[in-house]
Design a protein around this nucleic acid. Structure first.
Lengths: 205, 205
DNA sequence: TTATAAATTGAATGAATGTTCAATTAATTT
DNA sequence: AAATTAATTGAACATTCATTCAATTTATAA
């Protein structure tokens, strides 16, 4: 009875436009009114779905972190081979295509919010911790399969994460494309070195 | 003739209040009006000194980056001993007192601006690059003095910076004090390990 | 066809924003 | 004391903001 609810689909549409505008102009310069204008709908419709701006931002953070999570996803082709799976993840993390899928500016913009917004802080902390656990799992699997020679798995995983976060922090300021790619390759190499693995071209994404 | 100018002193006062409010409530929640209210002055006075909000923010970025730079400052006592100087810098970077002097939230908040504000981007890039050069200089001096055994100085310096940036990225989300300090110590240890140095208590700050 | 429920609009709100400009106050020099 | 220059105020500005509420349109089920 009554009209079919479009709620979830509509919310996602709104968030996507929010994402694209914030990506272009920054989080603080993206208002509800501007999102509505871009979508050619009424601002009150956005408030109808997200009761407050805070909820809207929260939805954006969810959206961004979901995208971020994808980088750690292992394709079905490599799911059964622990070594290939690990190599695929490392490859994904240190690849150029990541940038086309994911906007670092927004990731850091939302990250900056964690210092004053407990909700966002929790989301980030839980995501990063779950990714750590995941990487630990992969490494342990590799060790169990005898394809990896590491002693302290947790430390190794931590080293990888430090490398990732530190690498992109500086990389985001590198505008020269050649230097960017060169550094990226070097960091990937270093990640493999931490894992006592060698670069391989055999692994597809 | 006429009144003595308080311009520079007053501008610094304003920025300091801006800093303290933004530290507490976040950059985007700190308006000119709020700064003026806190100082019990008229908002137009702030505009008098900083023509636009953009200029005001730019001043804040300068202020923050100047503070950041201090972490890399070597005390006079260690200035002549290259090994002690390097150890002091590493000690400063991975110390708890840094947090009392410097607000990570604002540092990341301004960092997030680099993605849409070319001016801020240049400031950050130039600072980080100059710090790199400085660290490279210290390491090279140590090598010249025969107290350090490293081959590729630039790579070593880059590894240190990646460690710093990556470490604090995650540390900023760690609220448990004990875990925070434990990790911090571990990262410091790792920095020394990259330099092939050992932890020393002999170096004062 | 009618009832129902959700989607959407439109107008209005008050508060806060950055900024302008003229007027006034306060300090310093001649 | 008078002239000068900067500090500071106060009132006003147009804009934008998030949010509210009632009214209307649109789709679906009975």
């Amino acid at each position: 009875m009554g009209r079919k609810s479009l709620k979830e689909a509509r919310k996602k549409e709104i968030i996507k436009v929010f994402y694209s505008l914030a990506k272009k102009n920054g989080l603080e310069n993206t208002s509800i009114a501007k999102i509505a204008a871009k979508m050619e709908i009424n601002p009150s419709l956005i408030i109808h779905y997200f009761q407050t701006r805070e909820d809207l931002v929260s939805g954006l953070v969810d959206y961004i972190l979901d995208k971020y999570k994808l980088i750690y996803k292992v394709s079905a082709a490599n799911a059964t081979d622990s070594r290939k799976a690990l190599l695929e993840i490392i490859g994904n993390i240190f690849s150029k295509k990541w940038n086309t899928l994911f906007d670092d500016g927004l990731f850091y913009g939302c990250y900056a919010m964690t210092f004053h917004d407990d909700k966002v802080r929790d989301l980030y902390k839980k995501l990063l911790d779950s990714l750590r656990e995941m990487l630990i799992g992969h490494i342990e699997q590799c060790r169990a399969d005898g394809v990896l020679d590491v002693t302290d798995v947790e430390t190794v995983a931590d080293n990888i994460f430090v490398l990732i976060d530190g690498a992109y922090f500086y990389l985001s300021l590198v505008s020269d494309k050649a230097e960017y790619e060169q550094r990226l390759a070097k960091y990937r190499q270093q990640a493999l070195s931490i894992l006592h693995l060698q670069e391989l071209s055999e692994v597809a994404g």
